[in-house]
Write a protein that binds this DNA or RNA. Structure first.
Lengths: 188, 188
DNA sequence: AGGTGCATGTAACAGGTTACATGATTAA
DNA sequence: TTAATCATGTAACCTGTTACATGCACCT
């Protein structure tokens, strides 16, 4: 007779959103609103969030004992400040040191259009231009936050650097490809 | 009294998954299975798909009159081949020439770890190495499909080139950052 | 007096993944 | 004969977005 499977008494597992929140609290963003504002300025480029996730997840994290929230009204405004508990710090560091394959997911409609562009070659150049325009907008946004980021902690600064360098490079590729396609069109 | 809003008799809107399928059929992938196989080899790097989307969506597209499916059993195996209808071609080209802001979504847990790495600086180098390893794997996969892609249509080839160049660049950044972090650690 | 920003929250919905089910064919 | 591959499909689940609701505070 098979032994009954281990009762799997793991506490409910830390979700990806939960990790983001723990990390953000560690960076000093103590309210749901704060977390969202900062994330929209920074992490949004590689990890988007919404209030619809953040507020319910903060409650779940509190139930799990990873954060502790206390009301800190500013003026007459309702407001809850959260801090990490010891368990929360451990959970955050456990995630940062885990060797599991980190998730990577991309949905890029611009690439998709380029990929299928043989079905309408006349628009190919235009599609690449649109991709470049998007990257140029992104670059401008990243550059706008650079100055104040370079005074802050290292982690955010490194990701910002990577984002900027990466975007610059992408723009170069688009320009080159545009030139190449334009040259081919001329030949015909 | 306000005029009743236009009855919005637009036929049900073409979803993103639907677009992928139309594009794939245009590239000669005529069955659900075929589409998935090819997408897993190529478009997966910027747009993942699953059978759970593809098969139901093929039916929806047929209801919408954008594709036509006919049973083409190979041996005794059930099998349905799809082709684009005129309306399907128009829909595909309409999408390719539309000026709507193309969707872009990224979830990159590696970047997230780097972003929060101040909470466990000892692991920072390791995290960047993991990111590099991921990109190196990706590069190997992309290079493996390059030879046969370079004989095919232009669109897929261009996206492949972009993917390769982009990945190579990312690897360089990781290496440079690793060197820099290693040097800083030595100084201390 | 009214618009914007601060601050929290929820319900409905949309989209996608996973696990499962089925069954034929082919190569070892 | 058994494992892998071809081929299709569905139901349950999970995650995340959108739209909405509430109300205070601050600036003009």
């Amino acid at each position: 007779m098979t032994p009954t499977p281990t009762p799997e008494q793991h506490p409910p597992q830390l979700s990806a959103t939960g990790r983001v929140i723990l990390g953000m609290i560690a960076l000093g963003k103590t309210t749901g609103y704060d977390i969202k504002q900062f994330a929209d300025l920074t992490a949004r480029h590689f990890w988007a969030t919404s209030y619809g996730q953040i507020y319910p997840e903060l409650k779940r994290l509190e139930e799990m004992g990873l954060v502790r929230g206390r009301p800190k009204p500013s003026g007459g405004r309702a407001r809850t400040e959260y801090q990490l508990t010891k368990a929360g710090e451990r959970a955050l560091q456990g995630w940062l040191s885990s060797d599991e394959e980190p998730l990577y997911e991309l949905r890029d409609e611009g690439m998709l259009k380029l990929f299928f562009s043989d079905s309408l070659p006349e628009r190919r150049l235009e599609n690449i231009r649109a991709m470049r325009a998007r990257e140029e907008r992104r670059l401008a946004q990243l550059r706008a936050i650079e100055p104040h980021a370079s005074q802050g902690p290292e982690g955010p600064y490194l990701t910002l650097q990577l984002g900027i360098a990466n975007t610059e490079w992408q723009i170069e590729w688009c320009k080159e490809t545009e030139r190449r396609l334009a040259a081919e069109t001329d030949k015909e």
